Amino acid sequence: MLTIGDKLPDFTVPVQQGTNALPAGETLSQDAFPGKWKVLFYWPKDFTFVCPTEIVGYANLKQDFEDRDAVLIGA
């Protein structure tokens, strides 16, 4: 299990933002956002009340993460 400060393993995944279709060829990798902390969060139950609750909670803290040079990446 990775914890704070551990190096992410190499990965490349397709990106989707919002409800739009996947952009042509746009990907996200461990090299994205150089010089920033990356906060990866996952929601355990798509299409239940848990999913939007967690996403909204992180969205409410977005500025706090940005103030600390961190980006939020949800999956």
Rank of each mutant, 00 (worst) to 15 (best):
G25P: 03
L28I: 09
P44F: 15
F33Q: 02
V15L: 07
P14H: 00
V39S: 03
A24T: 09
G18M: 04
V39C: 11
K45Q: 15
T19V: 12
W43F: 14
G35D: 03
P9I: 06
P9V: 08
L40Q: 05
E26H: 04
F33N: 04
E26L: 11
K7E: 14
Q16F: 03
K38T: 09
D6W: 09
T12N: 09
D10Y: 15
K38H: 05
F11M: 00
T27E: 02
L8I: 06
T27D: 02
P34V: 09
Y42G: 08
L22D: 00
L40K: 01
L22G: 03
A21C: 10
T12R: 08
P14A: 03
P34L: 07
T19A: 15
K36T: 08
A32D: 15
P14F: 00
S29F: 03
N20M: 14
L8G: 01
L8W: 05
L8E: 05
D31E: 14
F41P: 01
F33L: 07
A24M: 07
V39D: 04
S29E: 01
P14V: 04
Q30W: 07
V13Q: 01
K7T: 14
K38D: 10
D6E: 04
W43Q: 11
Q17S: 13
T27Q: 06
T27P: 02
P23N: 04
T19W: 13
P9S: 05
L40V: 12
L28W: 02
K36Y: 11
